[in-house]
């Protein structure tokens, strides 16, 4: 038995080692993950309080309060958006540097109560503007992330591996002998997966809403439009990976290279607000970030079409670009 097991083990190892592209990805992926995790979770301890400063950037010498320890100061250029975050207790205090210095505090927030004391100790003349609002439950904030993550995995892996299997089995080669074009084939795959994803997402949305309930004040048709464009963009992204390769390991590695940064940087589990500008810039290169930002804006803040139009435009453009690239680089048969 051991001899047979070793024979198969040896053959499989040879197969893996000789598939150079897959081997390189398997070795590089853990290194990339370690680097990524160190950027996201590394650095000093998380602060106790989060204070929004109404300005384009935060200069810690601009006011004595800004030199407080264990407080994270976040630049928020738009007052309306910042006040919504304060109402949902996503930030603990909102400050407009003076003179005169003004601040908004959520009277329902325990952390707001404490951090207000710190502000008044540093600047007793600051003018108080009270607001109120219950804290958004983490589940309300997390729910769009869970839907988006499920969508991402289904889009990338569901389509990528199917196309790979078709290519390896020779089914694609047979289709190539017909008048079917690469664009038609890929479009059919995209639409088939889109239908599945929309159905699953709708079931999750309704099911979780019925079982545990979640906060959603926005337009459902707008969420459907967002889901369609988001899924199209991510399916097309998966197709660009599966368009020409024939190695399961390589395609799996490449899909992991896409999914892990999205898992960490797109805001599924935690907000990237306050993280370095370049991290946010990288995060906004991913379709999932736009899906989640727009979904949270609609569901939590009741944003309309105009407010999320830039996200929708990004998703529509990337869907077309990925699909065009996939069709251009598509291979019907194993090279």
């Amino acid at each position: 038995m051991i001899r047979r097991l070793l024979s198969v083990l040896h053959a499989r190892n040879l197969e893996f080692v000789r598939d150079r592209s897959a081997l390189i990805f398997s070795l590089l992926l853990p290194v990339a993950l370690v680097i990524g995790m160190s950027f996201v979770f590394g650095g000093p301890e998380r602060p106790l309080f989060k204070v929004g400063i109404l300005s384009a950037s935060v200069n810690r010498d601009a006011a004595p309060f800004l030199r407080e320890h264990y407080v994270q100061f976040v630049a928020v250029p738009q007052r309306d958006a910042a006040l919504r975050e304060l109402t949902h207790q996503q930030i603990d205090l909102l400050v407009e540097l003076g003179p005169p210095q003004r601040y908004w505090v959520n009277t329902d927030s325990p952390k707001g109560y404490i951090v207000e004391k710190l502000l008044l100790a540093a600047d007793p003349s600051a003018q108080r503007q009270p607001v109120s609002g219950a804290a958004l439950r983490y589940v309300d904030w997390l729910f769009p992330g869970i839907l988006g993550m499920n969508m991402m995995f289904s889009c990338l892996f569901g389509v990528g591996y199917v196309v790979l299997r078709y290519r390896k089995s020779g089914f694609l080669k047979r289709l190539h002998a017909t008048p079917l074009s690469a664009f038609e084939f890929l479009s059919a795959q995209v639409l088939s997966r889109l239908l599945l994803i929309l159905t699953v997402t709708a079931i999750l949305y309704a099911g979780i809403g019925a079982v545990i309930g979640f906060h959603s004040v926005g337009s459902v048709p707008l969420l459907i439009l967002l889901a369609v464009l988001g899924a199209l963009s991510m399916i097309a992204l998966g197709l660009t990976i599966a368009a020409r390769f024939s190695s399961e390991e390589l395609v799996g590695g490449l899909l992991n290279v896409l999914t892990w940064p999205m898992m960490l940087l797109s805001g599924i589990w935690f907000s990237l607000e306050g993280s370095p500008r370049w991290v946010q810039w990288v995060a906004h290169a991913f379709p999932l970030t736009h899906v989640l930002d727009a979904a949270r804006a609609v569901m939590l803040d009741g944003a309309g079409l105009t407010q999320i139009a830039p996200h929708l435009l990004f998703l529509a453009v990337t869907a077309l670009a990925f699909l065009a690239f996939g069709a251009w680089s598509f291979r019907w048969r194993i090279e």
Binding site: G170, F171, K173, R174, A177, T178
Partner: peptide, 18 residues
Amino acid sequence: GERFREEAGILFQKTALQ
């Protein structure tokens, strides 16, 4: 070209189906 693809029938040595 297109006309050939419309008018040709092909049975490969090895073909997998869906």
